[in-house]
Design a binder for these strands. Structure first.
Length: 443
RNA sequence: GCGGGGAUGGCCCAGCGGUACGGCGGUAGCCUGCUAAGCUAUUUCUCAUUAGAGAGCGAGGGUUCGAAUCCCUCUCCCCGCGCCA
């Protein structure tokens, strides 16, 4: 949530921000309309309550003297009627105001590029060496602004969907039978590779000062509303029937909400936390997209980096998170590019967001593998997470970034590391898998 | 699931129908050669910002002229019992 005080004091900041997002003024103007109504009601209520309090004290005095109090009591009853009316109105106004305020996005960092769609995300860098087939070279060059390093790919590559079937390492059809589309059974070495990826990422972050943990996979409404934005909530979040519980779509949410309503001593900051969890996503807005295989699924595993920081440090930590994920994906030998996500694609929580997109040689394009955001104080304000510095309470800054997302990274490995019908294992993972390739599963 | 206890400003804690007690910590000032101690004021949110006013005692209802206090519903925590991977 944004800072209402700041909005009242410096509305021009928000008008300017909405302009950069090409979203128009109406949301901000609606806020002031309704906020003025709210203020005028508060004044009315305060006046009435003042009169009521005065009368109440008088009643107590009159009673002690044994005098008549009916006149005062009648007036208080009248006031109560009036208060009830205004209060009813005020509840509605507050609801409406909250729904407006919660739709006002975070204030963007100046370095966020302006743009309407993901087409205008800004290329930052490329790393690795991509295998690019002749038909995809133009696309690759464009996507890396001619700075991508690649070799001509003469190997005949097949999609991860076909590869999984050929090697008998996943069962999508039976998952469909019992659960529906976008579910999967992972079998044998592909399953072990997933476990290896997760364990590798956990060890990787342990060595970089992260406290590793597994959070609850379901959280209540207050926590999820505080941690997420409406878009994610509507498109991703599953609700548990008859319970105040929601399945998490990322461990970012329980980890962020972990310190809800708490005050952190400033010498405990920064707190680096790595959360590992299953992630459940409805994928409501993705009908027809990536409908085959395990690229886009309702459930996957993810290791997520999270940092609570002081307000003045968060931009440094944003770069640190990016570097961690780059080092991690780089160590897996997956070629990738980093982009600075533009105003039209960034969503409402983040003040700035980097995406790391891996090169998928079969699809012939870069696809998102990781997303690294600085939410500044926006998420912490909704969750009421503060820290104390020299006796002053401030909202913490929160940052999050993917370390590794299981299924998508598996697809990246399957597309990049297939070799004459087998899948080679990235070197750093071999100590975790105990094997160096995946061949036909005979079971 | 059953019984008992609890939730009060940043923290601790009193109040148990008549304007929220006190301590600790924080901040500002005074005092002191310095430090410590001591003294004074202040400490949440909202409206108005000049004086001032209102709200707030886990959440939501109710009774009452008046509720932290009484009644109902719910949430979470602690202790015991039961069940359980």
């Amino acid at each position: 949530m944004i800072d209402i005080k700041l909005l009242r004091e410096k509305p021009e900041i928000f008008y300017e921000d909405m302009k950069r997002r090409s979203r128009g003024d109406s949301l901000i103007r609606d806020f002031f309309d309704i906020d003025n109504q709210w203020k005028s009601n508060v004044r009315k209520e305060n006046d009435l309550r003042k009169e009521k309090n005065t009368l109440s004290i008088e009643i107590s005095k009159l009673m002690k003297q044994g005098l008549d109090t009916t006149h005062n009591k009648d007036r208080v009853r009248e006031i109560n009627e009036e208060l009830k009316k205004i209060d009813l109105e005020q509840v509605k106004i507050e609801e409406a105001r909250l729904s407006i305020v919660s739709r006002i996005p975070n204030i963007l960092h100046p370095s966020v590029p302006s743009g309407v769609s993901d087409e205008e995300n800004k290329f930052i860098k490329f790393a690795g060496k991509a295998k690019v087939s002749a038909t995809n070279i133009a696309e690759f060059r464009k996507a890396t602004e001619n700075r991508g390093i690649f070799v001509d790919d003469d190997v005949e590559r097949i999609s991860h969907v076909d590869l999984m079937e050929m090697l008998n390492i996943a069962d999508i059809a039976r998952a469909g039978k019992i659960s529906g589309a976008r579910f999967y059974f992972l079998k044998e070495r592909l399953f072990k590779l997933e476990m290896a990826l997760v364990n590798y990422a956990i060890d990787f972050l342990s060595q970089r000062q992260f406290t590793v943990m597994e959070p609850p996979p379901m959280i209540n409404k207050r926590a999820i509303w505080g941690a997420t934005d409406m878009e994610t909530f509507n498109e991703a979040v599953y609700k548990i029937e008859d319970e105040d519980l929601y399945l998490i779509s990322t461990s970012e949410h329980p980890v962020a909400a972990m310190f809800m309503d708490e005050i952190i001593e400033s010498d405990e900051l920064p707190m680096r936390i790595a959360g590992y969890s299953a992630c459940f996503r409805k994928e409501a807005g993705a009908h027809g997209k990536d409908s085959k295989g395990i690229f886009r699924v309702h459930n996957f595993k993810k290791v997520e980096q999270f940092i609570f920081s002081r307000e003045e440090d968060s931009w440094d930590f944003h770069e640190e998170l990016l570097k961690n994920t780059e080092d991690l994906i780089g160590s897996l030998e997956i070629p990738y590019r980093v982009i600075n996500v533009c105003t039209g694609d960034i969503g409402s929580l983040a003040a700035k967001k980097y995406d790391i997109e891996g090169w998928f040689p079969v699809q012939g394009k870069f696809r998102e593998l990781a997303s690294i955001s600085n939410d500044t104080d926006y998420q912490a304000r909704s969750l009421n997470i503060r820290y104390r510095e020299k006796g002053e309470l401030k909202f913490a800054h929160t940052l999050n970034g993917t370390a590794v997302a299981s299924t998508r990274t598996l697809v990246a490995i399957m597309e990049n590391f297939q070799n004459k019908g087998i899948i080679e294992i990235p070197k750093v993972l071999i100590p975790y898998t105990g094997f160096d390739h995946i061949e036909l599963n005979q079971d």
